[in-house]
Design a protein around this nucleic acid. Sequence first.
DNA 1: CCAGCTTATGAATCTGACG
DNA 2: GCGTCAGATTCATAAGCTG
Lengths: 380, 380
Amino acid sequence: MTIAVKPRARALRTRDEAIVAAPVLPLNRILRGDCIAEMRALPSGSIDMIFADPPYNLQLGGDLARPDGSHVEAVTDDWDKFDSFAAYDAFTREWLAEARRLLKPNGSIWVIGSYHNIFRVGAILQDLGFWILNDIVWRKANPMPNFKGTRFTNAHETLIWAAKSEKAKYTFNYRAMKTLNDELQMRSDWVLPICSGQERLKRNGAKAHPTQKPEALLYRVLLSTTNKGDVVLDPFFGTGTTGAVAKRLGRSFIGCEREDAYIEVAEERIAAALPLDESALTTMQSKRTAPKVAFGQLVEAGWIAPGTRLFDKKHRLSATVRADGSLAADGIESGSIHGVGAKLQGAPSCNGWTFWHLEHEGEIKPIDALRQRYLLAVED
Amino acid sequence: MTIAVKPRARALRTRDEAIVAAPVLPLNRILRGDCIAEMRALPSGSIDMIFADPPYNLQLGGDLARPDGSHVEAVTDDWDKFDSFAAYDAFTREWLAEARRLLKPNGSIWVIGSYHNIFRVGAILQDLGFWILNDIVWRKANPMPNFKGTRFTNAHETLIWAAKSEKAKYTFNYRAMKTLNDELQMRSDWVLPICSGQERLKRNGAKAHPTQKPEALLYRVLLSTTNKGDVVLDPFFGTGTTGAVAKRLGRSFIGCEREDAYIEVAEERIAAALPLDESALTTMQSKRTAPKVAFGQLVEAGWIAPGTRLFDKKHRLSATVRADGSLAADGIESGSIHGVGAKLQGAPSCNGWTFWHLEHEGEIKPIDALRQRYLLAVED
DNA sequence: CCAGCTTATGAATCTGACG
DNA sequence: GCGTCAGATTCATAAGCTG
């Protein structure tokens, strides 16, 4: 399956070729090399979601390269500190700008970090025009203690979730998240264990990667903000947690990684990951995307007879169903179940499905219950 | 007691006078005016700790209504309006630079914010030479829900705690925090309720300030990073939570505030605050809440694979686990473990944890057993 | 007086399809 | 792009009210 190769997007060739043949995305592959260079070779507006776990370490030195590839020396004195922040900012601005170019207009990005880098990442995201949707706190169930007792135990990491722009229609699987959280809205603080035990990948007895993220974290990220079949890019692929979870959840991935050792571990791991089958993958559908039923349909199908009286929950307001599915009530203009409900209450808006009730054998039930039964009956 | 006056620090007069007489700090007073101007009049290196709750620069759209139609009161005050990120950054840089000048060499600063502003604040703190010690997450026990179901519930705010410089010997009362936390190290995530009920200050029936912070939050901040007798500056004093808690804990405060209405409320409040005695101190400890586990957590953590079949105890009813932790069963709408269990039995309700069972090596066990084991595994 | 029910509210970047 | 309108959407607390 996954083979680490340089992508040869046709967009890089002549303009005519690019017009004739749409660029081919290197789906489910790990691109070996620096993420900025690799991202440059991919076509604009082609990615649904980006998950990025960029380097955190500013002051530890050694690992950070400037955008031009030159090495940033380890810094010890105050004089150099500003220089190191500037270098980190430049690097961050560069890969985030590429990331933004690659995103589809309605795509979104996740970046994870700690207090060492996340404030710089967040500010640059905003400066580049990304629109922050949430900051998520991964509350570690089992963090490393502060051994010297000098500070509060650093028990969390922060993720930023941002849309490409303010007006973007981003993907958010609200119902799936609410279901995952026992019918309560999913909050911005997530309690999850760190990656350990069987899940932690080893090589020669040592951990294969210093900052391997738990699959549960990626599971929630991918389930909440992508759809089946979406393309997810991870510019700092490491040992491929993003790829493994994407495969399980029926999403495609593209990874960038510089280190051969990590690529090797990732490929093995992803090859072993099992995709979930169709039925397990189905998630709770939001009513927004569910097939719509007009109130008039219930009337014409005979589920509600014209002339039926509807009431509000407390039986204080009432209206009469007419043949075309409109409602009539005393003293106001007739109209839709929503409009009449709103006018009777003097409210700016009203969901007629939950506001209006039917009396049936002494019981009073919202008309939405009828709609649910109708939906089940006509669905096949 | 507290009187709102312009400070006339002697440092502003002739150099000779400043040398002869040390500047007098306006202790336990509220300085009426713009915080930058007021801070400029205070002497350098005179403050032990600064707590700041600056404007968040929320950028709200139109009106927001709850699902029941009621109106959500927004923060629309002029003090939270900025023309651009650049304008907000310039303002932030200016007050933070003054704050740094005022701090003693071993002093520290706290700033609270949300994703709207905290990334900019954090980056500027670093740029100015502050040394971040922790980012603290205030996990709200009772946040406002996301009424429209468009994002994750914004259930936390972030505090940054930073020393004046990397080498500073800052104050951290490790033992006090460990004691407060039932002999476990205090973590970087704090669960505290929002300010409501009796604690919420009112004027003419309306809240006196739109963003009043809970005293418990300031209590923990002051107890952890100041000593008795220390001087605490709050540049955005509002209705004086910092002042009230400082008085209770035997610290001195200096507040800056522009609005007369807030100053009046704060003075009254602080006058009524009683310094704490030992016995009252023990009652301040936060309640530990029992951790809850959603069924979906077990799925995303890999403890139950999507596609798994669940059965009732007598193996007569069954359902399939889906990726978002919902259950699917023949002939009924899918839903939560509780809802599907109820519907299949035709019961009004059902505890899915004890109703559903897993088959494992011939044995059949309630999923609640799994939950217990999961709790043990993720518990601190 | 208490139990149970109803109402109020909190730093919120809070809809989307169609004409 | 803008106006219109169907219709989707909430959790924890505390205070107030009723019987």
